[in-house]
Simulated assay, not measured.
Amino acid sequence: MAASPTARLRRICLALPEAAEVETWEQPTFRVRGRIFAMLHAAPDGLAVWFKAPPGSQELLLEAAPDRFFRPPYLGHKGWVALRLGGSVDWAEAAAQIRRSYSLIAPKRLAARIEGDDAG
Rank of each mutant, 00 (worst) to 15 (best):
A2F: 08
A2K: 15
A2R: 14
A3K: 15
A3R: 14
T6W: 09
R8P: 08
R11N: 12
C13Y: 05
L14W: 02
L14V: 02
A19E: 01
A20E: 14
A20N: 10
E23T: 12
E23F: 11
T24P: 03
E26V: 06
F30G: 02
V32A: 02
V32R: 02
R33E: 14
G34Y: 02
A38K: 07
M39K: 06
M39Y: 11
L40F: 10
A42R: 15
P44V: 03
P44Q: 08
D45M: 01
V49F: 14
V49Y: 12
F51T: 10
K52Q: 13
A53Y: 07
P55C: 03
P55H: 05
G56Q: 06
E63N: 11
E63R: 12
A65P: 07
A65G: 08
P66A: 08
P66L: 07
R68E: 04
F69T: 01
P72A: 07
Y74R: 07
H77I: 00
K78E: 07
G86M: 00
G87E: 02
V89K: 01
W91E: 00
W91V: 01
A92I: 04
Q97A: 12
R99Y: 04
R100T: 11
R100G: 08
S101P: 11
Y102N: 03
Y102T: 02
S103G: 10
I105Q: 00
R109Q: 09
R109G: 13
A111E: 01
I114P: 05
G120L: 14
